[in-house]
Amino acid sequence: MKSLIGILDLSTKEIDNLIHTAQDIIARPEAYREKCKGKKLATLFFEPSTRTRLSFEAAMYELGGNVLGFSEASSSSVAKGESVADTIRTVNCYADIIAMRHPKEGAPLVASVKSQVPIINAGDGGHNHPTQTLTDLLTIYREKGRLQDLTVGFCGDLKFGRTVHSLIEALSRYSGIRIVLISPDELRLPEYMQNKLSALENVTFTETKDLEEAIPKLDILYMTRVQKERFFNEADYIRLKDSYILTPEKLAEAKADMSILHPLPRVNEISVEVDDDPRACYFRQALNGKFIRMALMLMLLEIQ
């Protein structure tokens, strides 16, 4: 029985298989409509989420299964002080697979140790969010036709942005990846992540504060939101939240086939005028999230 806690729990072969399955689901959705008939997904969301929870639920419904769960901690026994381990033991009695979001880092790992059914980490604080990374990888693959030989710019909050860390780790296992880190000093990629990148031969990385300078070289531009919930000090959040805003003017120098990704939700870091640009992929990315979660649940439930 396998769980997914961090993206590196999956080998590149497993990721390639998931992308292949997701592509097949997109091509032949009718072939998958009863694959999970009789199976139940529990969505345990100890903190609010819109797209991740709905995406998981839509994915299970499209596979013919059912969904149960809660969408905030206040409507669960956690509000009475129940531990993660006890919650998981209880939910094991009712569900075949569990998708869990929790504000505390490491909570899904605790759950996976106690669980008799697969656990999918649907986000643990600022730590891991592997299904977002799978979504990003599927999007890059569908937009570019490959996961190798790409120049990928990450822009905005590279310090707290869990999606950035996970995607960098995942891409680092492919060849010919050139990473451009675009952030203010206060939100630079943490030193330990930079050290990891420096040790790799197949990846090069550069740092800049200037989005306009970096943009002409990029095949992919991954924008991020400066997340209020990751700051203890509101003054720091207010000072940094508008660091980078992508506008049509800034896109003028970008490649005609550059893809703009964003894990969403967006606040104002991508101007709404960019939405109609064919290079804007973020809503297609949200749709891809459902397909890759369908593929993932089939894999973890060992359904062919």
Partner: peptide
């Protein structure tokens, strides 16, 4: 010491650390 870690709220969890970088003893 991370206030965002699950060990900060679930007191019975063992505090376990894994060697990440032997040279720097991290």
């Amino acid at each position: 010491k991370n206030p965002r870690c699950i060990t900060s709220v679930e007191q019975e969890l063992p505090h376990t650390f894994r060697l990440d970088d032997p040279q720097s003893r991290v």
